[in-house]
Structures are given as structure tokens and as C-alpha cells.
Amino acid sequence: MTILQEPLTGLAAFVHAVETGSFSAAGRLLGASPSAVSKVVAKLESRLGVRLLQRTTRALHPTAEGLWLYERGQRIVTELAETEVALREAHGPRGLLRITAPVDLGRHWLTKQLPKFFAQYPEITCELSLTDRFVDLVDDRFDVALRMGEAADGPLIRRKLGPTRTSICAAPRYLRRRGTPRHPKDLAAHDCLPYARDGKRQTWTVGNVTVSVTGPFAADNCDALLAMALSGAGVVLLPRIVAAPDVGAGRLRALFPKYPSYGPNVYAVYPEQRHLSPRVRAFVDFLATEYPRSLDVL
């Protein structure tokens, strides 16, 4: 019996098991239980009369025959999936788009852009997860991730959208009480509200000046730092997408306008595919246009 007579579900289960190294991970991709994936692969082995996978308690490893089949079967499974997507979206981008982004970037920037995206592509629906943990796109079945800074994304495609622009701000009541710093080096004598993660407080870079700051409060969330700054507790460094509304309303005053300040780069990250889904391509192209445009405004 030839491989052409084996149901494609068996071949797809085998290919995903090799790629992910486990039946559990393959099951998440296929929407099936690990036992169901294992049974389908076992049936494929029985049909072919060869062992395709060496099973251990820790991982799966293809045999020589399994590697031969994977190298050929992976192309078949990929092309079939791409053909199915192309047929479903032949009349334009449509379907469910699953996105993940950091909390601050998602809440203060991305959610404000999505209505414009949906107006352009009304056949696309979206699920958005905002989290500061590192999300594995393949295991968690996301189409696109927004990342801030460098990350070990392996074979994923990382498309640079641009840097984050930052502002050093303080509430007028704080400046009346403590005075207005005239130079970034003056921050060493002020109550500052730094971003902190894993017990490490970040230093601030303003233009080409780097300052170690101290103060009564630190947090790993920009909304918390913003709230403290608005209360008059100290000086804060925030992404402009977070600070801009309060600076525009006069609740915060931006300091050192002659010293442009930038934070980590923002990237759109998505799985590498020869023929990218039209809805993913449309969304990534939208981000690549809108993010730099927002930097010009802020």
C-alpha cells in the first residue's frame, strides 16, 4: 500500500509530531488529544510496515525511514495547508486572526489602531491576548506577536516596525515642590520612578546621557508608574504612547525636549511560511505603515 492511500490526517499528524517533538504539541496544532495523534501515527506505521518514530519518555525522534518520509511529507502538508488558506481567502483577507502583544503596547497603541484595520478588512475577526510573558507562537497557536526588544525567536520572521519613543515627565505639583531639572544629570537629585523587573531597576538614557536614578517607587507596569507620576510622587520615564494623553492635557509636563529619547525596537513576529496567509500579511503590512506614522505624530 502506497503513501498516497494513507489519509492525509495521518501524514499531517506525523509531520507535526516530528516538528514539535511530542504528540502533545502536535495535538495542540491539530486540535486533537495526544492519544489521538499517537494512534493516527501508529496506524500510519502499521500501513507502511516500518517504524517512523522512536518514542522516549522525553521526546520523539524520527528513524531513518521517518526522516525520509518527513522530508517529503512536510512539503505535501505545507502546500496543502497553503492551498486551503488561499482558497478560503481567494476573495480577500478573511477569517480569524490571533494576536498577542505586551500589555502597555497593546493597551495604549494597538487597540487604538485596530478599528482602522477592521474598517479596511471587515471580513477579518480578531482574538487579542495582552501579556508580558514570552509567548510561543507555535505552541499557543498565535498568528502574529508584537515584541519589544530583542528575543530568541528561532525560525520566526521578525519585521522591524520602529523604535519606541520615550518621554521623561513629571506632574506640575511635583515640579512646584522640587523644582524643574534643567539637564538630565539633574535627575540624580530627584525622586524618580523607574521601571523594574526581576529586582533590577533600569537606568535612563536621555539623548546621549545615561543616568542611574533612585526614588520611592518602582514597578514593572507603565500604568502603575503613570498613576504615581500623576499623583506627584516623582519623575517618570514612559513610552510616549503612554504619556502623550496626559502631557497633552497638561496633567504631566515633558522634560528635556531638546534631548530625543528612544527605547527598544518594536517587531512584528510571525511563523515563516512560503505563502503567508493573506490576513496575516495584511495585518503585518498595516502595522508596518501605522507604527512609523504614529511615531511621527507623538
Rank of each mutant, 00 (worst) to 15 (best):
P7R: 11
L8H: 03
L8F: 08
L8K: 05
T9V: 06
G10Q: 05
A13E: 01
F14R: 02
V18H: 00
V18S: 00
T20I: 02
G21V: 04
A25V: 11
A26L: 04
G27M: 02
P34R: 04
S35W: 06
S35E: 12
A36C: 13
V37Q: 02
S38M: 10
V40Y: 01
V40P: 01
V40C: 06
S46T: 15
R47F: 01
L48E: 01
G49P: 04
G49L: 05
R51T: 11
L52M: 06
R55H: 07
A59E: 14
H61S: 12
G66W: 00
Q74F: 04
Q74T: 09
Q74S: 13
E82Y: 01
E84P: 02
V85I: 13
A86S: 12
A90F: 02
G95S: 10
L96W: 06
V103Y: 10
G106M: 05
Q113P: 09
F118L: 13
F118R: 15
A119D: 14
A119N: 13
E123G: 02
C126F: 06
E127F: 06
L130K: 07
L130D: 05
L130V: 06
T131Q: 09
D132M: 07
D132H: 08
D140P: 03
D140W: 05
R141M: 11
R141T: 12
A145Q: 02
R147Q: 12
G149D: 06
E150M: 11
A152E: 15
G154W: 10
G154I: 05
G154H: 12
P155T: 06
P155F: 01
L156I: 05
G162W: 01
G162Y: 03
R165K: 15
A170Y: 01
A171Q: 04
L175M: 13
R178K: 15
H183C: 09
K185G: 09
A188M: 11
H190G: 03
L193C: 08
P194G: 07
A196G: 13
D198I: 07
G199Q: 08
R201E: 12
Q202R: 15
T210N: 09
V211G: 06
V211W: 00
A219R: 11
A219M: 08
A224C: 12
A224Y: 06
A229W: 03
L230E: 08
A243E: 10
A244V: 12
G248L: 14
A249Y: 00
G250F: 00
A254P: 11
P257R: 08
K258Q: 15
S261F: 05
S261H: 10
Q273M: 09
P278I: 05
R279W: 05
A282I: 03
V284E: 00
E290P: 04
E290T: 12
Y291F: 09
L295H: 07
D296M: 11
V297Q: 15
L298N: 14
L298K: 10
